[in-house]
């Protein structure tokens, strides 16, 4: 049986549909990512899974339990790291961790092996108040606190948002380490490049899952031809390419531009010819497989009118 099983879930706040007929399942010991921008419904979904929010309709089973009826039992099985830092700023690092351990009837010592990959990094600062920690250290403390009672399922709401690229990588390395203990991980992120670090992902937008599967499943499902154009002047080239017919989309990716063809009639020769006609020289055009961000953009363009 799957560790998380959700079917046809709906949740509205007044006229705003936060979750719109959402279904997904997470295997036991899975490493599952919810990928999407702010407002996609990721936090609402996590709050329903963790029994902190009531669904309007649909079925939700987490660890074999119903989060509405069995919330007391379920909460013992869950570790949850909310998007906002929610620990006690006036308690020290160690006091925060002790507090969470005691609430769940355990001790730091008992589960030290579990939190070690994370906690050992902040242990030298264990007497510092949580409010005085840097962003990266707060994050590690929050993760330690979410793990200290040996949960079966770990739910992490945007743990890497606003965190620099280096600390983000370190955090994902820690999650991979934690997963080895058999825990199931559900994590959300707005950073598309983090998607490939999960086994399975759901791309979320406007309360819906627009695609799901392994990162490879998703990128291989991209049907149109994609071309990457390298240029020294991205803004200029963007404007030129936006005038070309036969293209579904034209988007900047750093110092390259990704161009998606409407049909197989538009290929590398057509693009090169168009660039030549518009007196653009010195750029290379190569066909390329799509990445997760290409897929996401494509889904948004297909699913919305704006």
């Amino acid at each position: 049986m799957n560790e998380i099983e959700i079917h046809n879930l709906y949740k509205s706040y007044g006229p705003t549909k936060a979750l719109d007929n959402l279904s997904l399942s997470v295997e036991k010991n899975g490493f599952y990512g919810l990928i999407g921008p702010d407002g996609a419904g990721k936090s609402s979904l996590m709050r329903i899974i963790t029994s902190l929010l009531l669904p309007d309709s649909g079925s939700v089973i987490v660890g074999g339990l119903d989060p509405v009826k069995d919330y007391k039992k379920l909460r013992l099985k869950l570790g949850y790291m909310p998007g906002k830092f929610s620990l006690y700023q006036d308690l020290s690092v160690e006091e925060n961790l002790k507090f969470f351990a005691r609430v769940f009837g355990t001790t730091i010592e008992e589960n030290y092996h579990l939190i070690k990959p994370v906690y050992s990094q902040i242990e030298p600062f264990k007497n510092r108040r949580a409010g005085k920690l840097s962003g990266g250290m707060k994050q590690k403390l929050a993760l330690s606190c979410a793990l200290v009672h040996k949960p079966e399922i770990l739910i992490l709401d945007e743990p890497t948002t606003g965190v620099d690229a280096v600390s983000r990588r370190e955090f994902w390395d820690m999650l991979a380490e934690i997963r080895k203990s058999g825990i199931t991980i559900l994590v959300s992120t707005p950073y598309m490049e983090e998607a490939v670090l999960c086994d399975k992902i759901s791309l979320m937008f406007d309360g819906k899952v627009v695609d799901s599967g392994s990162p490879d499943d998703i990128t291989s499902g991209f049907k149109n031809n994609l071309f990457i154009i390298k240029s020294a002047n991205v803004p200029l080239l963007l404007n030129v390419l936006r005038g070309m017919e036969g293209l579904k989309s034209v988007n900047s990716f750093g110092q390259t531009i990704h161009v998606v063809a409407d049909s197989s009639e538009t290929g590398k020769p057509e693009i090169e010819e168009f660039l030549q006609k518009n007196n653009v020289s010195g750029c290379s055009v190569e066909q390329s497989p799509a990445g997760i961000e290409d897929c996401f953009i494509d889904h948004i363009l297909t699913n919305t009118t704006t």
Partner: peptide
């Protein structure tokens, strides 16, 4: 200061426009 944190990939590009 981090003007595009958390926004979707299309809006992020419109912002850069």
């Amino acid at each position: 200061d981090e003007p595009t944190s958390g926004v979707d990939p299309i809006t992020r590009r419109q912002f850069w426009d």
